[in-house]
């Protein structure tokens, strides 16, 4: 029962979707404040390498080491995001160019790769990893065992984050302010909202989430460090935000859908279900879906109808029109 295809797909969709969820929640925060950050992949990789480094080098109990690793990864992601924030908010550079530059600078052929080599992190498993929290007996419960109780702490924390961000954006005064900064920074400015600090704060928070997303890969899913270990997850996360109409609860649905999609190809093979050449399934499907989503929502009218922040991608300068 618990090993049936559907249950396994849902359970592994949640596990593999969790890095996507963290990254897309972060990107959602930044975009809701009007800052598009295409540097997610780069920020994730730096978070992944620094989180892994922390676990390898901080010799304490597993709990402390892993907590420290998540904090370091969040910090590393935020530091990366601060580069983007400075360039696009203070210097008002093109958000698209700056974000791409960030991914190139920090990504698989850049800073994260340098750090991984320089800190000599390859060729060793993580000393501590995130395990399923609940006892094995509960994980054996039918259906909800593997899906609900078979996950690690990062999954449960991500659920709390979804609820917190949803409440924050829809029920609180600062959340309303963020949305107004993203929709109409001039109007928000007139209302006395500090556009610059809101955008900085949410871009940095977005980076922190991306860093945690990266660390969730190197400390939970594949607990080792290799160059480019995120394998394009950052790009999928950016597409997910659009796919989710800039709403955190739909980010969760989308992330788990993409996670399940990644698990689908090997599952079908292992169960001897043939659906054409596997190269199509294993390599292309998540990216094909990403492209489809991006094409669908790339027209301006579709975007505004889907709920894109009106000022997304535009720098704000007071008294400029």
């Amino acid at each position: 029962m618990n090993n049936s295809l559907l249950i396994v797909l849902i359970a592994s969709g949640i596990a593999y979707g969790t890095p996507l969820l963290y990254a897309s929640l972060g990107e959602l925060l930044a975009e809701r404040s009007g800052v598009l950050n295409l540097g997610v992949e780069g920020m994730m990789l730096v978070g992944a390498v620094m989180g892994f480094w922390t676990v390898q080098r901080v010799h304490t109990s597993a709990g402390i080491a892993l907590t420290a690793a998540i904090l370091v990864a969040a910090l590393a992601g935020a530091v990366m995001a601060s580069i983007h924030a400075f360039l696009v908010i203070t210097l008002r550079a093109s958000q698209i160019v700056s974000g791409l530059a960030l991914t190139i600078f920090a990504g698989a052929a850049g800073l994260s790769s340098y750090l991984g080599n320089d800190l000599n992190l390859s060729d060793a498993p993580a000393r501590h990893t995130f395990h399923a929290v609940f006892p094995a007996s509960m994980q054996r419960w039918s259906v909800i065992g593997p899906i609900v109780f078979g996950q690690d702490i990062l999954v449960y924390v991500s659920w709390a984050c979804v609820i917190a961000i949803w409440l924050y954006l829809s029920r609180t005064r600062p959340g309303l302010n963020v949305r107004s900064v993203g929709e109409s920074p001039a109007a928000a400015d007139t209302m006395g909202i500090n556009v610059t600090s809101y955008r900085y704060a949410h871009t940095l928070a977005g980076g922190a989430f991306a860093g945690v997303a990266g660390a969730s890969i190197t400390l939970a899913i594949t607990p080792q460090w290799v160059n480019g270990i995120t394998g394009g997850a950052g790009w999928i996360a950016i597409a997910l935000v659009i796919f989710a109409f800039w709403r955190p609860e739909l980010c969760l649905v989308g992330a788990y859908f993409f996670g399940a999609l990644q698990a689908l190809a090997p599952q079908l093979q292992a169960r001897h279900i043939s659906l054409g050449p596997t190269v199509l399934w294993t390599n292309a499907l998540p990216y094909v879906m990403t492209i489809v989503v991006l094409v669908v929502v790339s027209s301006g009218t579709a975007r505004s109808r889907l709920g894109a922040p009106a000022a997304l991608g535009n720098a704000y300068a007071r008294e400029e029109r």
Partner: peptide, 14 residues
């Protein structure tokens, strides 16, 4: 690594 892990997991769950 990500695909290899998923492949192993699929084989074991199957």
């Amino acid at each position: 690594p990500a695909k290899e892990k998923k492949a192993a997991q699929s084989l074991v769950t199957a």
